[in-house]
Every structure is written in C-alpha cells, then in structure tokens.
C-alpha cells in the first residue's frame, strides 16, 4: 500500500522542474507516502504539507520547520514547472486556467497564483505565475464503507446525503468512494448498482484527464466534467436518467435550484459542502432553505481529529438527531 502511495508521489514529481524534483525525491520514504501538498512560491522556501502540518525542504532534501534553511524557489523553477504542468501548451488549458487550476494526469490538481487578466467575458487567463500549489490526490478505496448502512435503505434506495467538513478533511475522497460503491453495487451490503451521474465542476471527483476518469468511480457512472451544477443537473436528467446525482462543494443559490430540479425528477442527491457543524450550515443562506425543507435525510460530518476523513457524526435530516454511534 505504502509503495503505491510513494509511486503516486513520484509520478507527481515528473511535473516539477528538475532542480526541485531532485530535492523532493530525497525526502524520507515515510514522508513521501503522506505528502498532501507541494507549494512553490516565487522567492519563498519550498514548502510541503504532510498530514496537515507544514515543512520546508532544504537543499539536501531534509524536512525542517526552519524557514531560513529551506531551498528558495526561483522564477526559473516556477516557469519550468509551469511548462511541464501545462505540457508547454497554455492554450490547451485555457478553460481550466480561468478557474485557477490545471488538472494533471492522475487527477492531481495544481492551483495557480499570479496576475489575473480580465476580458469581455470575465477572467481571461492568469499570467506571471508566482505560486503553484500541487495537491496530490489520493484515492482511498473503501473509506466510505462504514457509511453505507447509514445512507441506504434497501438494495436500491439511497438517502439524499450531504457530507459536511472543513477543507482538507477528505470530503471529496469520501464522496468519490461512495460514488464507486453505489455505482458498482455491493454484495456485502446487498446493494444493487445504481446509475450515478457525476457533475465534476472542478475536475476533482473523477479527475478527468484527456477524457478518461483517473479515479475509479464505478462502472455505472457518467461524468460531466467542468460543467456547472445547474446545467449539469438538467443535462443529466434529460439524457442520462440517473438514479443518483453526485456533486462536489455546493453552496450557491444556483446549486440549490439544481438540487430542487433533481428532486422533482425523483433523483437522489449526494453532495458535499464546506462547513463545521449544523449551525454553520444554517448560517449559509442558500443552505438554510434546504435544511428547512428537509431535503437532505442524512448529514455526515467529517473532521481530522483521528486523521483525515474521521467521521465525527451522522445526523438524521428529519429529526436532526445523531444516529452515529
């Protein structure tokens, strides 16, 4: 298992300029398997995040918390890395860059910082790239198995479910794994496979690269990548007749409309949202509507108190009482 994780890390290094990837290759194997983010900022020391704490990397590939010992990232490092990430072809990632990131082979996402240029139709592109945030996507098969019995009722019925967690607590990973299990079906839980439509607005869920999902999202899953949730929901309802629609990071009023549309068509919803607890959700205007209408039957709260993806609580959407012991 660990070796696979190290392999993922080393694949990501392929996209980093030689000067830096040599250094990053030298960090200890035990850390390699846990790296979550690699951050390159012009003029700042090379920074990586391992299990939610941050370290600087020295010229020799040692991890330190002393910023002064970290290898300083230069303009050249950023430019070379950016060229490798964009495959020398900025034009091929035009649409993605407007959203501020590029998806790599393997489903990893690279966030971009720099000068944003506006055109007639909103953001046109980002130039003078000054920082890169390489988020290593790790597929955790089976993390959601313990949740299945809480969110299903019978072999082909799943409750409308909302996964709530702060950033970096594994909600996308959890949702992806739920999609896989629901789509494939599972004998153990006597689940029949369902048709799942995935609206992958930010290319994170399926990690589509060159049209091919980079993660296992099940065999009855259709993906609309890069599509916004409202359009995506309507398209899926019309064309794909899904049993379940999954979407990541809802929040805007349009997303709420999308959910209403889907529910009218008798489709179940799996979604995630940023947040800490129920009060936090109530404070979000658009979410308040969904809470009051009792659209979601299950709320799953995650945190990282016992590592990424710890299930803190599961709340029944009708009674607002915890059902997780």
């Amino acid at each position: 298992m660990d070796e696979k994780e190290i392999g993922i890390y080393e694949n990501v290094l392929e996209f980093i300029s030689l000067g830096l990837s040599h250094i990053l290759k030298r960090i200890p194997d035990t850390s390699k398997s846990k790296v979550e983010e690699i951050r390159l900022r012009y003029g700042a020391p090379l920074n990586i995040y391992i299990s939610n704490s941050d370290y600087f990397v020295t010229e020799e590939g040692r991890l330190t918390t002393e910023a002064s010992q970290g290898r300083i990232v230069g303009k050249k490092d950023i430019m070379e890395t950016f060229q490798l990430i964009s495959n020398y072809s900025v034009y091929a990632f035009e649409e993605e860059m407007k959203n501020g990131f590029i998806t790599l082979k393997g489903g990893h996402r690279v966030g971009l910082g720099g000068k944003v240029l506006y055109g007639v139709n909103g953001i046109e592109t980002i130039k003078d790239i000054s920082s890169l945030n390489i988020r290593i996507a790790r597929e955790k098969r089976g993390v959601s198995e313990k949740l299945i019995k809480f969110i299903t009722d019978g072999p082909n019925k799943v409750y409308n479910t909302l996964i709530v967690s702060p950033p970096q607590c594994g909600k996308t990973t959890m949702l992806r794994d739920l999609i896989r299990i629901l789509s494939n079906g599972d004998r153990l839980f006597s689940l029949r496979g369902m048709k799942v439509g995935v609206i992958d607005e930010r290319f994170e869920l399926a990690g589509v690269y060159n049209g091919m999902p980079q993660f296992d999202i099940g065999m009855r899953t259709d993906v609309l990548a890069g599509c916004n949730k409202r359009d995506g929901t309507i398209m899926l309802i019309r064309a794909m007749s899904p049993d379940v629609i999954a979407m990541d990071e809802i929040g805007s009023i349009h997303d709420v409309e999308a959910i209403h549309e889907a529910i009218k068509a008798g489709i179940r919803i799996l979604a995630t949202i940023h947040g800490d607890d129920l009060d936090d959700l109530i404070s979000k205007r658009s979410l308040k509507i969904l809470l009051e209408e009792k659209v979601f039957k299950r709320y799953i709260f995650l945190d990282n108190s016992k590592g990424v993806g710890t299930v803190k609580d599961i709340i029944d959407g009708n009674t607002f009482k915890s059902i997780y012991k």
């Binding site: 495959n87 072809s89 091929a92």
Partner: peptide
C-alpha cells in the same frame, strides 16, 4: 492542431 484542436504541443 492548436487553435481548433487544442492538442498539447508534444502531441500536436
């Protein structure tokens, strides 16, 4: 290849 196909350069 570039303007209509948006293929990355090595492939283009």
């Amino acid at each position: 290849e570039i303007v209509y196909g948006a293929n990355p350069l090595p492939e283009a």
